[in-house]
């Protein structure tokens, strides 16, 4: 009863072999077992998008994913985007556009943008808004986040 399960996952191209209780969420696994604290907890109910990560190419709120469910998956967190000191173009665009204030929504916002631009390289404004609808931000009013996504599109061209 309630025994631990063994899972193997790849996070930011690094393989992990772990024993987890079924009630461990992917969010807590990343933050507390793997020390990847760039993924943030904002609501723990899938409503805010701060805990967004990319699982097998798809964005998910990691607070609503059990670690046991992602056995075998490849996961990208915010820590997996930049190469050393060199920022990913999306990260750079968020910095340059003033799209970062308190920074708590930022990792989720950037990962959602990453998934968007992987899927649609030159999205319309409606497509950007549709993709980012689940990432809440209280600081920026979103104007500069839209700017950042548009600037990222240019940087990636």
């Amino acid at each position: 009863m309630e025994s631990k399960h063994r899972i193997q996952i790849t996070v930011n191209e690094e393989e992990h072999d772990l024993l987890v209780h079924p009630n461990r969420t992917l969010l807590d696994l990343l933050r507390y077992d793997l020390g990847l604290t760039g993924t943030k907890e904002g609501c723990d109910e899938g409503d805010c998008g701060a805990c967004t990560v990319i699982v097998n190419g798809k964005v998910m709120t990691s607070c609503l994913v059990l670690a046991v469910e992602v056995d075998g998956a490849a996961i990208t967190t915010i820590e997996g985007l930049h190469q050393g000191d060199e920022l990913h173009p999306i990260q750079q665009a968020f910095v340059d556009s003033g799209a970062v204030q308190c920074g708590f929504c930022t990792p989720g916002m950037i990962l959602t943008t990453k998934a968007l631009l992987d899927e649609i390289s030159d999205p319309s404004e409606d497509e950007i808004k549709h993709y980012l609808e689940g990432n809440l931000c209280r600081c920026t009013g979103y104007t500069k986040i839209l700017d950042a996504v548009n600037n990222a599109v240019q940087l990636l061209k």
Binding site: L36, T37, G38, T39, K40, T77, I78, E79, L81, H82, L87, Q91, Q92, F94, V95, D96, S97, G98, V100, Q101, G103, F104, T106, P107, I110
Partner: peptide, 15 residues
């Protein structure tokens, strides 16, 4: 731009 933004976009800013 915000001087703290680079750390924040990398996920290395410690809250």
């Amino acid at each position: 731009p915000h001087r703290d933004a680079v750390e924040k976009v990398k996920g290395s800013a410690i809250f």
